[in-house]
């Protein structure tokens, strides 16, 4: 059930990680991997999709060792998308909590 719930929220999680600070893919994956079991390879297709939607943009940062590293940054449009997803998630959780917290109607027990 946990896996089912996590599916479809991956985009939101990636955007949320980037909302904290700009990051590169390996760092994003490491952050997410602390709390969910993700397939590392598919993060790249996801990042390209987010880029195509103009939710994230990239820039290169020169590093002392090895080639320049590609950083991802949340765009204003990405920030709005994240805010919308957060609202949706919040109302979804509230609805489910309301159902779970509801006492059984009287006379329902056989």
């Amino acid at each position: 059930m946990k896996t089912q719930l996590r599916k479809g929220t991956l985009e939101m999680c990636v955007l949320a990680v980037l909302a904290r600070h700009d990051s590169y893919v390996y760092e994003i994956v490491s952050t997410l991997a602390q709390s969910m079991d993700i397939s590392e390879g598919t993060i790249y297709p996801l990042m390209r999709r987010l880029q195509a939607d103009d939710w994230v943009s990239t820039y290169l940062v020169e590093s002392a060792s090895g080639p320049a590293r590609k950083y991802y940054r949340l765009t204003p449009a990405g920030g709005e998308a994240l805010a919308a997803m957060r609202r949706e998630w919040g109302s979804f959780v509230a609805e489910i909590n309301a159902v779970l917290g509801q006492p059984r109607p009287e006379g329902d027990t056989p």
Binding site: T3, K7, M36, D37, I38, S39, T42, P45, L46, R49
Partner: peptide, 8 residues
């Protein structure tokens, strides 16, 4: 499908 394969 992408959501299906991204999360195990």
């Amino acid at each position: 499908l992408a959501g299906d394969t991204a999360v195990r």
